[in-house]
Design a protein around this nucleic acid. Structure first.
Lengths: 94, 94
DNA sequence: TAATTCGTAACGTAGTAGGTTACAGTTGAT
DNA sequence: ATCAACTGTAACCTACTACGTTACGAATTA
């Protein structure tokens, strides 16, 4: 189990993709063929990366869709793990 | 990009967890502290594995939540990739 | 000053996770 | 043959999320 709160994937998109290329949010949203609002929500952690969005990101930035989706998965999982102790689940196997 | 349609994670749950232990859907749902309907939907591919559900599965079956969530991610991604050609995304980087 | 960029509020649509209740079909034991 | 248990699923509900358009104020830049 991961120890530290992982950054949301939007932060990574901004730091590793937009900033280095000097691309504005508006321009990136146009390239991705999504609304500026949607991209803004992702960049600011108010929305996650959907499977389709992961494919869009891979097309625009030449990365793998899997890596984007995995980042989202790890982020979601960390938050779910924080609530593990509140779940009353019975063990069925060792 | 994966070539063949991956099975939905519910199939894996049934084959690798329920069947070997001889646990019924009803019993497993009770152990997981979810409704029988919800588990049935997962087992039959009509619902995905949420982050919280991945944690529940890990508690009941002694597996890692990450592995369950990754399976769902791979499954979702495969279907999103099938529609890649329909997305009109402009390349921003090589 | 004028134009651009950005975050975000307000509103709507669509889809999904999850619950309860109820029904019909199957199977196994008596 | 009957009864109980198991199963899938339909119907109905709530809550949340992804995504869109429009519009606004604040900040930045030409």
């Amino acid at each position: 189990m991961r120890m530290h709160n992982p950054p949301h994937p939007g932060e990574i998109i901004k730091r590793l993709c937009l900033d280095p290329l000097g691309v504005s949010v508006t321009e990136a949203a146009q390239a991705l063929d999504i609304s500026r609002k949607t991209l803004s929500a992702i960049l600011n952690g108010r929305a996650g990366i959907s499977p389709e969005m992961a494919v869009r990101l891979s097309m625009a930035f030449g990365t793998s869709a899997e890596s984007w989706l995995n980042q989202q998965t790890q982020y979601d999982l960390w938050h779910a793990e924080q609530r593990r102790k509140q779940l009353r689940v019975a063990k069925l196997a060792v």
